[in-house]
Design a protein around this nucleic acid. Structure first.
Lengths: 329, 329
DNA sequence: CTGAAAGCGCTAACAT
DNA sequence: ATGTTAGCGCTTTCAG
């Protein structure tokens, strides 16, 4: 910038004015400066600007895995809101590892992102307290924060799962399996609670062997499905706790001759063609809502941290409307 | 940092040394400094560090749409490589708009990202020349750069499409439709070239009405599929130029009674269950390869810009092995 | 082993 | 309308 000023024969501040489109420069001077800028290929260094202004115009998004089809749309929705506010988005994947989540979050704080959207992997976020106090607005999505009070935007996991299981019950099922994510994950707990509530509301007993929480790897889920469907009293329907579980369940069920009903949490591309009934949550809406809350905070709105819960939708496509196979009831 | 130094009763530089784990500090002094850091909740401000060091330890990735299942894994792969090199990843979606691509790229350059990975939306990247000259390493992925010489990592679109179409021909098809992306997109051109080559190699004539390039919106692709399959001489097979086209084609074909063969470019989740034959490209490998090239450059390797082409794989699952319906041949 | 001074490139505040 | 000065928070350099 100094070079530009020298070349244009003007003061430093005048260049700054031109670069930032500030008023108070004669068209003639502006032209001279512009020429110097072009000749030198000058481009403002935002690092210096950030240091001076104290704002980076960037927000961080820490999620579990950007390769998961659930998070792509979420991230994109956040990006769109950020863009509307002139901010860039720094993404990071925690790989469901609490330590990595913390490492990422703190790295983003060191960069002084203006705000942070976090899909928690861990359940203790007290490490964020000083950062939030220092002015980094933070919104949690998909799962609540642990140990601190902060904005959080969730899908109604409990209600969605309850409705999905009630749907299976309405189609005549009494023995329903539940396969969910790691028990430490909040949504897994909530969905299981929805399952139990639906069963209880219908006056049905729950055999604990029908319930399995853990990794969503096909290597774990596959054998679980197998086990639930064999033995003297197999389940006649399955509730899959998330998209990855659903995919594995569909693969397993496709190989069997006896039809087994299935409802999955999360929608999946092409699920309509495969006739998979799901509880759909709107990942983009989740991201958009969280981002809007974040920027409201950045704009200085300082009300109490709120908990927003987005409704889910039951999409009936066939797999959830299969009645129990004759003789298994 | 000044505050920490004051509180610990040491010099500024000593604090800096402790924060950065540099040698030359007595354990005792280090402890004092550490205490002050904890007490004050100090966190190094990377903005200032960046300004001084001239390196941001961040790379930018400009792609088309993070919500597209093809780009999620690509972005994640880039992130992993970046992480291994201690860098953060700033993502941006161009929405297939050349102006927005440029805007994003320049914004990232102003932030002084160390490097840039770009999936081009436009076909003229001369605007990047001064930036590259100024030291911002750049690698193009998925499509080549226009007007400048730079590293580029591609999938073998031509070969993949040629093999896919040859596969349909091998199963007896002579009238094959091709539905692709916008003609200005390089991969669309290459895949069409593959189609033409396969037809020519088999000595088959190509009716230009079998070919349709344009938006991949279902609203455009749907009617095109419909049109190709009606009339006196309908095509008996379709080659879909990318994942979105394939999805729409599958939806359309599911409604028909006469079987139509289909091979799609790009793999799709659950395509195995639906029996969709595809030419699969490895999005993660694309991202990883590009990122590795980028960091090699950042490490100072300065060889000639190279063009890397990754092989595709034909995954036969049923839809591509359907023979022409009797009487249509 | 430790610290003081200079300066990265920009902008805010205050002259002129 | 334009220029000057100070300083954002850190690292580099060089001196103790």
């Amino acid at each position: 910038m100094k070079d530009v000023a020298a070349r244009a024969g003007v003061g430093l501040k005048t260049v700054s004015r031109v670069v930032n489109g500030e008023p108070g420069v004669t068209p003639d001077t502006e032209r001279k400066v512009q020429e110097a800028i072009d000749a030198l290929g000058f481009r403002r260094n935002d690092s210096a600007r950030v240091l001076r202004k104290g704002r980076t115009s960037s927000v961080g998004l820490v999620l579990e895995d950007l390769a998961d089809p659930f998070y792509g749309p979420l991230s994109r929705a956040v990006e769109e809101v950020a863009r509307a506010h002139g901010a860039l988005l720094i993404n990071g994947s925690s790989a469901e590892d609490p330590d990595r989540e913390q490492e990422l979050v703190l790295a983003l704080c060191a960069r002084r992102v203006d705000g942070l959207i976090v899909i928690p992997a861990g359940d203790d976020h007290r490490y964020l307290e000083p950062e939030i106090k220092a002015g980094i607005a933070t919104v949690f999505v998909d799962r609540p924060a642990g140990g601190i009070s902060a904005d959080v935007v969730l899908s109604d996991s409990f209600g969605g799962a309850r409705d999905g299981v009630a749907h299976l019950i309405a189609h005549g099922h009494r023995r329903i399996g539940f396969i969910g994510d790691q028990p430490r994950i909040h949504t897994a707990q909530e969905r299981l609670r929805g399952y139990r509530t639906a069963m209880e509301d219908a006056g049905l007993p729950v055999d604990e062997r029908w319930i399995s929480l853990g990794s969503t790897e096909p290597g774990r889920v596959g054998p679980v499905v197998e086990k639930l469907l064999t033995g003297p009293e197999p389940v006649t329907a399955l509730f899959a706790g998330n998209n990855r579980v659903t995919v594995t369940a569909v693969r397993m069920l496709a190989r069997r001759e006896t039809p087994v009903a299935l409802v999955g949490f999360d929608d999946i591309e092409l699920a309509d063609l495969l006739g998979i009934t799901v509880i759909a949550q709107d990942a983009a809406a989740l991201g958009r809502t969280a981002a809007e809350r974040l920027f409201r905070r950045l704009d200085g709105v300082a009300d109490e941290p709120a908990r927003v819960e987005l409704a889910t939708r039951l999409l009936t496509r066939g797999s959830g409307e299969v009645p129990p196979a004759p003789g298994t009831r």
